[in-house]
Design a protein around this nucleic acid. Structure first.
Lengths: 201, 201
DNA sequence: GCGAGCGTAAACCGATCGGTTTCTTCGGGC
DNA sequence: GCCCGAAGAAACCGATCGGTTTACGCTCGC
């Protein structure tokens, strides 16, 4: 079933993820298929509609996108550091002139249709980021880990939006805001290391 | 030059603002003119291109949109309360099922083109909100009013994005986050009134 | 009453949209 | 050698895109 080279389906999904991110979901299927080196015929054998392809490409690229920001599974850092790692990565990535914001937010805002299959995908992947924050917030001893997690997600998306609108680097804004929120929620001050309260050293 | 009823130009701009917000800037000029009750011919006499209309409609609706959130010019409230007023309004508005996020952010993200005339408009109006925050932050005695202002703008846009993606009300998230940031920047705690430090009573 | 001018509807333009179909080419199993 | 199925190229479908033009009607000033 699978050919030696990447399958038509995979080439399609990868090209779609890239083109939809750089040009929006209104990019045509013609340009899409050309970029993937796949005929429209083959595309419509794999996907019933373009909407389905949009959702599938977001589903496929989603884990890779989130992985750009999440730290490695196990390292020696504190939960606080692991949370702030996400925002350090965001600062770095948002400096690129190809940065167009979070693809989940971007897609959902462009679709403006909560019932679109890709909107479900976007919501799930954003929840993954929030779940990570909540887990680390709990380990860091936050008073309300769920609240802090949602706050950090808000900062993540808001900083991405600002980078897009302003067209300028965040210059530490995301990291500073996240730091303030984490410290406020864990009782830490700016000079503190943020070592988790639940595992006093 | 102006007729008794709203001019074609104004009807066009108002219809454009509404349709572009609810359906994105990819809404066609045909549907637009039909909604405005203006012929395409008249539209293209007022605006050279659709892009120009997009920018002009954002320019026209911009002040009204920001006014939805900003407090009245002069009232008896503290700067802290005036800042938080913006987020109270955001909480309320984001609960509507017609809420599609901040139109400036939405338009800029959808256009994905920093050189588009409407991108300039969006940036300017977002700056107006930031300027308000900075002014109030200064009055509230924030250590770094410019930083707090940018942080609050990030929260504003991030909360809007979250409301769109999740499809659920913010349920206090934006207000709580803004409160935390304001208090952290002004040295206030959660139980404090937030009266400005520069004008001790 | 009548001509001038404006704005309307609607046809029209080439291009592209999402989606379908036809035809051809290629490769692998018998 | 032969044949079958998969996939590519491209024509085709009706609809719509942004944008232009034609032709008609309505309301003015006179």
């Amino acid at each position: 079933m699978n050919t030696v080279r990447a399958s038509s389906r995979d080439r399609l999904l990868d090209a779609a993820a890239e083109l939809f991110y750089s040009g929006g979901v209104h990019v045509g299927v013609q340009a899409l298929c050309a970029a993937a080196g796949v005929s429209k015929r083959s595309m419509y054998q794999e996907f019933a509609t373009k909407d389905e392809l949009v959702a599938a490409s977001l589903e496929r690229s989603g884990p890779r996108y989130n992985a750009l920001f999440l730290p490695e599974e196990a390292d020696e850092r504190t939960p606080r550091e692991r949370i702030l790692h996400v925002f350090e990565r965001l600062e770095a990535r948002s400096g690129s002139d190809r940065y167009r914001g979070c693809p989940f937010v971007s897609t959902a805002m462009e679709l403006k249709d909560i019932t679109h299959p890709a909107s479900d995908v976007a919501r799930r992947f954003k929840q993954q980021l929030t779940d990570f924050f909540e887990q680390q917030a709990g380990l860091a001893g936050a008073a309300d880990p769920a609240l802090l997690a949602r706050q950090l997600t808000v900062v993540f998306d808001g900083a991405g939006a600002r980078a897009v609108v302003s067209g300028k680097p965040l210059a530490g804004l995301a990291l500073a805001t996240a730091t303030t929120l984490v410290d406020a929620a864990t009782g830490g001050s700016s000079g503190e290391t943020g070592r988790p309260r639940l595992s006093p050293g």
